[in-house]
Design a protein around this nucleic acid. Structure first.
Lengths: 213, 213
DNA sequence: TAGATTGTTAATCGATTAACAATC
DNA sequence: TAGATTGTTAATCGATTAACAATC
């Protein structure tokens, strides 16, 4: 059995449910590798992660045969394969708009490791423009359009108030930015149907917890 | 048709899929109310929100008959009903642990409006303890256990590194905190099966976007 | 009454789990 | 060879969509 990506595998027919589990697998496998564990079975993994062994095998089989019957999965091989699927080496060019508290907090993320290359941070507050945060000199939003076009920016991190997002999304879209990590409540994909959008709704998350309690 | 909560409605048999949509309904209905719109049909709502009208009616019917045939839904009545379901008036006592960049950013959230009462913020960095952020004087983690027990804290917001969460969760659990808004990757519910946990995995979210691009 | 839209049941679709033959 | 564990198919479960009778 080869331990390479299944040639029949097609990004388009992988369900969102599976995709959302991939980063989690990647994280756990990384951890295992760091701890020097070279082999793991779906059963062992299920106990650590809280998924069923069956689901784990199903998930891995969307992509190809990484396992070996009677043995299990080779940790580093599997980790690398999932990393490849998630495109963590892609270094996709991105920018951040909004350098308020949330934007600042997100600058602690190790973007490189997750497949992104954060090039610039923008804000429209004159008091913030020009200041430096985590090695980023904050730029004015006036320069946004040109920068996106010239640098061929692929993704934008939106950390501005919802009320400002409609206009902002328009500028970005016209300058060919079609992917968004969106922390506002304004739904960009409802207006531009061909964008990739991942929204983080912190308020919604907290309210869901409120319900559960 | 009464416009009250369905007496047969039971929190326990509402699926997670529905629960996760509730805050979103609440938000949109709030918006409509603010804009002075008093009536809306499932069809109109479906166009604004991007859900199907059928799903919207199914969802609302988990809880009771808020609508009126041939007319639609009364916006403010529906908003209030969903708010009640989400328990936004509960003012549940909570604390935050970790006053780093992320913790600071989260202090901008209007907790009251979402059903929570944030009482105190803790950290274990001597340089931070005693300083003031957004009207919160940061307390030492040494006081954590007593505070939780004395104040009957219901929920904790975890903004510390994953490596510190195991011990922290233990302290909290032993002092009867059984709900967590967890920004770390350490899975508390895997250890204490009776806790309510809502995890926000920012890295996973970003990686999922990486896949989609 | 006619038109509109809900509430609700039935049909479809998709995701998870179970089972087991293949095979290392 | 015997034991273990995958890869994969079939069964189950749950969520979404469609349809329409009830009714305002």
């Amino acid at each position: 059995m080869s331990n390479s990506l299944n040639p029949a595998y097609n990004r388009d027919n992988i369900s969102m449910s599976v995709i959302r589990r991939l980063p989690r697998y990647y994280r756990y496998l990384n951890e295992l590798q760091i701890n020097g564990i070279s082999k793991i079975s779906s059963k062992e993994l299920s106990q650590t992660m809280g998924f069923t062994a069956s689901q784990i095998r199903q998930d891995f089989n969307c992509f190809g045969g990484f396992g070996q019957q009677g043995y299990g999965y080779n940790v580093s091989q599997l980790r690398d394969a999932i990393g490849e699927i998630l495109d963590v080496g892609a270094n996709k060019k991105c920018i951040m708009i909004g350098a308020g508290n949330l934007g600042k907090a997100l600058l602690s993320i190790n973007f490189e490791r997750l497949g992104f290359n954060l090039l610039k941070v923008f804000d429209n507050d004159p008091d913030i423009i020009g200041t430096e945060i985590k090695n980023f000199k904050i730029s004015s939003c006036e320069d946004l359009a040109d920068f996106c076009t010239n640098q061929k920016i692929e993704m934008a991190i939106i950390c501005v108030p919802s009320s400002a997002v409609k206009e902002l999304a328009n500028t970005l879209y016209e300058n060919n930015v079609k992917a968004f990590w969106n922390f506002s409540h304004f739904d960009i994909s409802l207006i531009y149907s061909d964008v990739k959008e991942e929204s983080v709704h912190l308020n919604d998350s907290l309210m869901a917890l409120g319900f559960m309690i």
